[in-house]
């Protein structure tokens, strides 16, 4: 079971290099991180996976973008969540693995229909720590409400969850214990946090039936 931070944004998007973020992640208790954007992969330390984010306005645009070489090279493909019809459609795209930025959407943008589709196809929903750490006031309250709703759907339908720090800097990375504390704010149990942190490994190598060779 690999504990993975599902998204970090190293230099030049942020102020910390990928190698430094990987070193910090190892000290904070992570086995691997998913780096979004370009950057040389460090030779040692925790495993660094390549992530690609698709920000599209329509389902068709997502299908066009997943065919691009940069996205095909990625280990984990994220799509920014949108409105209700977009989310329902995008969870059925085969190449999409994680639906992210769910806290920026409207209240019912990810509903029970999308949740059922996500569970059937093994598409995860990302829980970002950014709104819990960086935001204050009503913005954070809204994010907590959205996360609680996602957790309710996760418990009912069983689609995977991922947890990401969304860090652009080592100052924004948090330890596994701190993430447990932050997730407890919206009712996530320790076991659920552990499962969510380990789910990136299951997304990139899904469980398949045993194949007899030879």
């Amino acid at each position: 079971m690999k504990i993975t931070d599902a998204s970090v944004r190293p230099y030049p998007a942020g102020d910390s290099s990928l190698a430094r973020m990987a070193a910090e992640a190892a000290e904070l208790g992570f086995d691997s991180i998913v780096a979004i954007g370009e950057g040389a992969l460090p030779g040692r330390g925790p495993a660094v996976l390549r992530g690609a984010v698709i920000g599209a306005a329509s389902h068709k645009e997502v299908i066009r973008q997943v065919r691009e070489p940069a996205v095909r090279r990625a280990d984990v493909v994220f799509v920014n969540a949108g409105d209700i019809s977009f989310n329902r459609a995008v969870v059925s795209v085969k190449e999409v693995q994680v639906l992210r930025n769910i806290h920026t959407t409207r209240k019912n943008a990810f509903d029970h229909v999308a949740a059922r589709s996500a569970a059937e196809r093994g598409v995860a929903v990302d829980i970002s720590m950014v709104p819990l750490i960086q935001y204050r006031g009503t913005k954070r309250q809204r994010a907590l409400q959205r996360y609680e709703d996602i957790l309710l759907l996760h418990r009912r339908y069983g689609f995977p969850l991922t947890i990401s720090s969304g860090a652009c800097s080592i100052l924004e990375q948090r330890s596994v214990r701190e993430i447990r504390g932050l997730c407890a704010l919206f009712g996530m149990t320790g076991a659920e946090v552990s499962e969510a942190l380990a789910s990136v490994g299951r997304l990139i190598e899904p469980e398949q039936p045993v194949r007899v060779v030879g």
Partner: peptide
């Protein structure tokens, strides 16, 4: 102490300077 440790994780700056507290 758990609540306060969680609150420490949400510290992002001291005054105008970006910073973090790691328990």
């Amino acid at each position: 102490e758990k609540e306060i440790a969680t609150a420490l994780a949400t510290v992002t700056a001291f005054g105008d300077e970006r910073a973090a507290l790691r328990t």
